[in-house]
Design a binder for these strands. Structure first.
Lengths: 183, 183
DNA sequence: AAATTTATGTCAGCCATATTGACGTATCTT
DNA sequence: AAGATACGTCAATATGGCTGACATAAATTT
């Protein structure tokens, strides 16, 4: 098992005596940005992950709490669209957040089948704490970037998102700033 | 359980007759960029996830294959640093990739305990396919951004990464372009 | 009014991916 | 020879996904 059949010793001229990873290869692919996105996101969510441990929560709880906080009165169905998970998966984390008092439900005004979700003050506190950590990182990352550059970053991130997503939350997000859900 | 004790009906003036998610709240936190990062990354990795299904692989396989491809001769220990997972988790994924011929190991030249990892042609093909999908998305997102703006985006992403990470791969990545691992 | 659809919740079971801790072996370093 | 290192593996466990089935209440359609 531990033996290696490396029958083509000519294809990796990068490995000489040093046994260190070779320099990245180039090409017509955006390897650099692919990797930057990986590391940036890894460390970005890492901030919150560390904090969440203390509460016995995971990343899923954070996502739910975040969107409920940001879009008060969000329906369960909306949350499913946004998070792209199944009802069952959402159910577990949502139940915890409800039981532990981070979120409350209220029956819809028009449609009494709906359970509209709201963050409690306890939930607000936690989500603000987590967003604070992430904001610190973002603010630091934007420190040497001027306002126009910040717009460019936003533009890039917006354009990375599927535009054909029939998602209420995304409608709001993808609209140019200022056009916030005014009916 | 389904009953709701919402004892403070005055705290959500956003919910009127419409029962639609309210507009996002503002404040001193970078909610906009936090959300953009979430959606951008969700859709970015979604491209590869869809393709990986056909191979019976998951995101973890992609990550391993990606970094082995990019840094030929990567050691197992390096991979653990980069992916921030445990040896056991990596073990399973790596074993599959080895068994199915996407990656090969070779004993280190200097240190024969090491198992240096290389992508096979089969592995190269798959990783290039996945990177192609992601590159398409990135290229599209950068379409209307000029070269200076693209540098700004890179600068932002780089600055989002933990700078104090004693990681060989990151050393390479975080160095200003051009200074690629030249000893 | 009855039938259908919708929004939500829940149960049972499965899978992928992560965890910690322990141990074994080969190899390098001292 | 002793200890540290690189790697592999085993056992047990947790989280967070999944599918499919089913139940209920409420809205909508017929």
């Amino acid at each position: 098992m531990a033996d290696i059949n490396f029958s083509n010793p000519t294809r990796d001229p990068d490995v000489r005596g040093t046994d260190r990873p070779a320099a990245p290869r180039s090409g017509d692919l955006r390897w650099d940005i692919i990797e930057l996105l990986f590391f940036a996101y890894r460390d970005f969510v890492g901030d919150a992950d560390n904090e969440l441990e203390a509460f016995g929560f995971g990343r899923a709880h954070h996502r739910v709490l975040h969107f409920v906080h940001r879009y008060p009165g969000l329906k369960v169905a909306d949350l499913l669209d946004v998070l792209r998970i199944t009802k069952q998966s959402l159910g577990r984390v949502l139940k915890q957040l409800l039981d532990e008092g981070y979120i409350v439900q209220r029956t819809g005004n028009n449609d009494r089948r709906q359970r509209l979700l709201f963050a409690t003050p306890k939930g607000e506190t936690l989500v603000a704490k987590l967003a604070g950590l992430q904001t610190d990182r973002i603010t630091h990352a934007l420190r040497d970037i001027n306002p126009a550059g910040i717009d460019t970053v936003r533009q890039f991130l917006r354009a990375m998102i599927d535009q054909d997503d029939p998602d209420k939350v995304l409608e709001v997000i993808l609209k140019p700033a200022g056009a916030t859900a005014k009916a």
